[in-house]
Design a protein around this nucleic acid. Structure first.
Length: 465
RNA sequence: GGCGGCAUGGCCAAGUGGUAAGGCAGAAGCCUGCAAAGCUUCCAUUCCCCGGUUCGAAUCCGGGUGCCGCCUCCA
């Protein structure tokens, strides 16, 4: 079986065949750095992390580009309100963004191009579009003329004629300077509100529109046609649609082969919003004492095309699942001597895991295979059948699959403080003396200090609570 | 109004025609000095509702209900 993805463009599951195997060129829409990213953003980034890790696991040579939008309306407004330079604000949030990625164990992209550092590339594309007659100017701003691109709407299945009506009632066409309310800005002429945020270019004094940055930066690092473009469903229209229009008009080539879109995260069944009080950044969750790995689990464990309902209860449940895996590994580490090597169990688990993820990243099914494996192995361990080699094979498999999910290697407490170990020894002596009152007292004491003692056949097992 | 998605046990969630994975929570048992961990058993005669197709449907078709997203530069 081959890797298959649901391509938004065709609305079908398609076998994945990169343009130049084994290379895979991947572009994912990144953050606008005007604030801390929220967990909904991270849902998308974790989906993309799984995608990239899995492609690498399957032998592809992935080159990943994620843009950073560091010039845009909200940012300019923030500059005005705080009277700080643009770069000071964006640098701060970019640093915070990377820190959050690390906490969630999201692997870094190969390149994080910033919009402000690619103005010349954007200008080039706009010039090319202008030469080909896809643009018009109005008061110094340059707009893309949608009517010049008949295929517009093919990704989102939006009907261009109906868009024209502005049926949402939220588009007041009278306010638009464009020929048509659907047209979008490639280049925005400077006005006073922009302050010192502008570039003097051949197109005049101004700044780029949002959509053009993704076209410019993706094509710069990945070429005029590349394999995969990801983003949240909300970016499908108009952002990705506009990217297609600009890029394909400029190059006359197919821009992207596979479009993958991630569904939204909701919290307690509702869209996150500050007014509902269910809007969380990663910081907010960590302050509440949630485990980063459990957050990663929750964000990853729902199929990327399903809406993910984030609740504290689910995170708690994920923490318990992680504990089960940790305990399984602790148990395997204690095994000595000869016995079953778990060859069949390991290969079955890996096969099911791969088959599941091949199928449009069916992570739930893949996790199911891992838990089946854990149960089967535990059963054999209980029966005393598993040898050291088998335990090592099982650990190796978890480590291997962990490269894909980042969920199967929770931190161990290798560094148990000596005073805790001394207490454990004391307790062992008490148990040998059949002084169970003292033994239980010590165990309770340690529990109060955050340590759990389990009496395994091989001796006491010390774990953090 | 247009486009799209979703509806499976207390919670999360697989499963696209063959008779309901898995995790968490819960109950009982085994094990244990007692626990914990682990294992075993139990926990949806049923997959939003109503029709239809079929030997057979959670899965296909028709209708309905509910929830959600997009249609302004929100992942």
């Amino acid at each position: 079986m081959a890797v298959c993805f649901f391509n938004t463009m065709s609305r079908k599951l398609e076998p994945f065949v990169p343009l130049e195997p084994p290379k895979v060129k991947l572009y994912t829409c990144g953050p606008t750095v005007y604030n801390f990213a929220h967990i909904g953003n991270f849902r998308a980034y974790i989906f993309e992390d799984l995608l990239k890790r899995y492609l690498r696991f399957r032998g592809y040579d992935v080159f990943h580009v994620m843009n950073i939008t560091d010039v845009e309306d909200k940012l300019i407004r923030t500059c005005r309100e705080t009277e700080k330079p643009l770069k000071e604000i964006t640098d701060f949030y970019i640093e915070a963004f990377f820190k959050d990625l690390d906490i969630l164990q999201i692997e870094r992209a190969d390149v994080y191009p910033r919009a402000t550092e690619h103005i010349p590339e954007m200008v080039e594309i706009i010039k090319k579009l202008r030469e080909k007659g896809h643009t018009y100017e109005h008061e110094g701003s340059i707009y893309f003329r949608l009517s010049s691109f008949p295929r517009y709407g093919k990704l989102s299945h939006m009907n261009i004629e109906e868009l024209k009506i502005g049926a949402s009632g939220r588009v007041d066409t009278d306010e638009y300077e464009m020929e048509d309310a659907r047209d979008f800005a490639l280049w925005k002429a400077w006005d006073e509100e922009d302050g010192d945020v502008f570039w003097e270019t051949e197109l005049g004094k101004g700044r780029p529109g949002w959509h053009i940055e993704c076209s410019a930066m993706s094509m710069k690092y990945l070429g005029e046609s590349f394999d995969i473009h990801c983003g949240g469903v909300d970016n499908m229209f108009p952002h990705h649609e506009n990217e297609i229009a600009q890029s394909e008009c400029a190059t006359e080539k197919t821009f992207v082969k596979y479009w993958l879109h991630c569904a939204h995260l909701v919290v307690d069944g509702k869209k996150m919003s500050k007014s509902l009080g269910n809007f969380y950044t990663l910081r907010d969750l960590l302050e509440r004492g949630l485990e980063p790995l459990a957050i990663r689990w929750v964000l990853m464990a729902t199929h990327y095309r399903q809406p993910n309902n984030f609740t504290f209860e689910t995170v708690e449940s994920a923490s318990n699942s992680i504990r089960r895996i940790r305990d399984f590994r602790l148990r395997l580490n204690e095994i000595k001597g000869g016995g079953d090597e778990l060859v069949e169990e390991s290969s079955l688990c890996e096969k099911l895991f791969v088959d599941s993820l091949d199928d449009d990243l069916n992570i739930s099914s893949a996790l199911g295979a891992v838990f089946d494996f854990i149960r089967d192995v535990n059963k054999k361990v209980d029966a005393g059948k598993v040898g050291e080699k088998g335990a090592q094979n099982a650990i190796n498999l978890l480590n291997k699959l962990n490269k894909v999910t980042g969920l199967f290697n929770p931190d161990f407490e290798e560094d148990v403080p000596t005073e805790v170990l001394e207490k454990v020894m004391q307790r062992q002596q008490a148990r040998r003396d059949k002084n169970f009152t003292l033994a239980d007292m010590i165990r309770n004491q340690l529990f109060e200090q955050g340590w759990v003692i389990e009496d395994a056949p091989q001796g006491p097992r010390v774990k953090r609570k």
